[in-house]
Simulated scan of single mutants.
Amino acid sequence: MLVPDKPTFINTVLGPLTVEELGPTAVHESLLSVYPGAQYAPEISLDRSEIFHILQKQLTDFYDVGGRTIVDASGMFHGRDLPLLENLAKSTKVNIIASTGLGPEEMLGGYFLTPQTDPPTPWPAKKFEDLFSKEITEGMVVPRVERRAPAGLIATLSTRSGMTATDESLLRGAARAAVSTGVALSHTFGDDVLQEIDIILNEGLSPDRLVIRGGERHGAPIIEAAHRGVFIGLEGDCHEALSLLIDADLHSRIILSAGATGVAKGHAPTSAYFSDFMKLCEGLDDALRTHITIENPRTLLAVR
């Protein structure tokens, strides 16, 4: 069992850390993001040395502006490279937490559907639960080679236009894996955040083990969602949503990220940088900044 028993620990790619060692933490970033299948395209280069040095510089910049921990929320098949993340963590002062997880359906591929039926039926939630749980309890898979460090987060996404049957099965399995392993769930909602929160919580997950990403979207019912006890993930151009939650005295429900992609292959990168994370807190007093960037991530990410 790789996951520590004590709730004061967080899983990183180099092993467990105490919550006191996290410091300011960006909970939803992507260091290397590879669109599934892009690694096989002849015109796309995956020069590991070049990628390493680009990311090393970006992580150093992140540290220099006060960041201390980054959660790579790429999940299982979007470029997660554990040896790369381990070497980056060793060569910089930044703690790196990697994630398991999948979604949405359009990004899964036929392996996660049952092709003998028409239309194909989704994997049952139990299979997704087992897949994610093993990445936490036995270590994350380096394809066809070995398992390494345990995942520190489960990251899922629903189809933006509306949750599909496969999305729901995956989401239920992820929630069950979060319950059984004590690792938190980070979910990017589709078109009905409150319905998706209900699905997750009905699987028995405590609200403070869930962060809903996409809270910066215009019109998202983030106040109602926050009152259910879940964390609201904000990134990018999120100052309006950030102010809304703070004014409603819901700062204890906020999780911030820059929403940056360090290196993108097969798709366009975001315009954000990891170092933008600390800029989101400009204008906040020290106590509020500490609560949002340090205390909230500690509560979310502690294995319990």
Rank of each mutant, 00 (worst) to 15 (best):
H251C: 05
T69R: 08
G79D: 09
F231D: 03
F62K: 09
D61H: 15
I136P: 01
L210W: 04
S33N: 14
F112H: 14
D167L: 13
E203V: 04
E129P: 00
F77M: 07
L194I: 13
E216S: 12
G110V: 10
E240D: 14
L280K: 13
R228F: 09
A151C: 07
R298E: 06
G67H: 07
S243P: 01
L201M: 05
L280T: 14
D249Q: 13
P16A: 08
M163Y: 00
S161H: 08
P207F: 09
T117F: 15
H239F: 07
E235W: 01
V71H: 03
A73L: 13
R217F: 11
T159I: 05
G66P: 09
G110A: 13
G15C: 12
H187V: 05
G190S: 08
E50Y: 06
R147W: 11
V263W: 08
S30W: 13
L22P: 01
E146Y: 02
M140L: 15
L284P: 00
I200N: 08
I255Y: 06
T12L: 03
V27Q: 03
S30E: 07
L153T: 00
S206D: 10
A149K: 09
L32C: 03
V34L: 10
D64W: 03
A165M: 11
L185M: 13
D249M: 05
S133C: 04
V94W: 09
A155K: 15
P122C: 12
L170D: 04
V27W: 02
R172F: 02
A175F: 01
G259N: 13
E203Q: 15
E203Y: 09
T188K: 09
M76R: 11
L88D: 02
R68P: 00
V142S: 05
D118T: 09
S206W: 03
R144C: 05
M140C: 14
G283Y: 10
G79L: 03
T299E: 09
L88Q: 04
P42Y: 04
D118M: 13
R228H: 03
K127N: 06
D192A: 10
M76G: 02
I10E: 09
L205K: 00
H53T: 08
A258C: 08
V183K: 00
P16K: 03
Q195P: 00
A41G: 02
I154N: 01
D81R: 05
E146S: 15
E50F: 05
L245C: 04
T117A: 10
V142T: 11
